[in-house]
Design a protein around this nucleic acid. Structure first.
Lengths: 206, 206
DNA sequence: ATGCAAATAGAATGCGCGTTCTAGAATGGC
DNA sequence: GCCATTCTAGAACGCGCATTCTATTTGCAT
């Protein structure tokens, strides 16, 4: 019925993702994507209604990819084991998919879309966020037998914040994190969970 | 001899800093600064040769401010005490000067000046970086009696990366970090230094 | 073969922002 | 009081980029 697309939807997203990972979302101009693909600028708009739609898609696809793996690890086995495995996903993800990792961890969501997100994408972003929130809450209950905000904060530090911190310098220099990084994450994870069990009384909801 | 300046050099930097902290360096346009000051755009250029010069100044002033305090704490007393005190400067700085903290910790240096830094500012930035590097190296020697890269990486995690991670969620939501955050930082700091003393043999330079 | 749907192709448009330019006003030394 | 100097004031310019518009091409259904 019609001419075949030379540049697929994913071709465009991939090109945008490469640019974003390399030099940040601000450098992802329609012109830059076009020349990365050797395509004319107009063709981009046959796939995406606007630059915002495209950049939002880049971010959402990457975030969903990471969160799926994270959630899978978080509930595979005994809490302590599974939690550590989830925490160690962070450096593993950085090594396996440095482009996606740089997109997700090196830039803030607001740098992709400065203004408001298009309605349907805002919903998808919100869905990802609640998914992560309820996952962490569920994990906190199973690991500490509590779900107050202090317990949640501790778990989030052990599972997300500390791994991110350990990996960040290597993301910035764009080199794979050395094995030592996994050690740092494990140290922080164990120390935080030990402290949580020691300091926080169980079965109390402050 | 001449007319008095209505807007001082620091007035301009402060206005730019407020805007950068509130909505990121990309939103710090000359027009935005001007309207923040109720000044005409032209006046900005009587103080700074270009937007790059101004934004660079914002970043450098903030970084120098933080680093001075950090270095002071790092060598005030016994290593373990002093190190913890330096690590805890991070949340203290966020509470005391949220604007400067957001500028320094929430955005990357490259988001302030995308291209190359003006020569003299590049030198000042480099000087700050080496100052921090040698400070950390000196601290590593005094705390662990080593200065190989593994020891340095551990110390940097305990002193910089982990505190940053603990504070980051609160910077994003623009609320002062609760006291619990100091606890997290202390836990990570002590665990990392304990592990370093246990795992790394002393007086070896790998 | 032929027409139409859906692409490619890239020039044209409009806008936002950094920077510069022109005018007018204040200040202090003479 | 007058001049040189340095500011305020804001309009004007030019460039880069998102978006749109006008061809032109392609391939399947008929």
């Amino acid at each position: 019925m019609a001419r075949h697309a030379k540049f697929s939807n994913d071709d465009v997203i991939d090109a945008a993702a490469r640019l974003a990972a390399r030099s940040g979302p601000a450098q992802v101009t329609i012109g830059a994507i076009a020349s990365e693909l050797s395509a004319p600028t107009g063709s981009i708009y046959h796939r995406f209604a606007s630059r915002d739609q495209l950049l939002g898609e880049v971010w959402l696809r990457t975030a969903a990819n990471f969160q799926t793996q994270f959630a899978a690890r978080l509930f595979a086995g005994a809490p302590r084991q599974a939690g550590l495995s989830a925490a160690l996903l962070v450096p593993a993800f950085v090594r396996a998919e440095p482009i996606h990792a740089r997109i997700l961890l090196l830039h803030r969501r607001e740098d992709f879309l400065q203004g408001a997100w298009p309605e349907t994408m805002a919903q998808r972003a919100q869905a990802l966020k609640s998914e992560m929130d309820t996952g962490l809450r569920r994990f906190t209950r199973s690991a500490l037998d509590r779900s107050d905000s202090a317990a949640l904060r501790l778990i989030k530090f052990a599972l997300v914040d500390a791994p991110l911190a350990a990996v960040l310098p290597h993301l910035r220099s764009d080199e794979p994190p050395p094995p030592l990084v996994d050690g740092l994450i494990e140290i922080a994870f164990c120390a935080t969970l030990d402290a949580a069990e020691k300091l926080l009384p169980r079965r109390k909801s402050s």
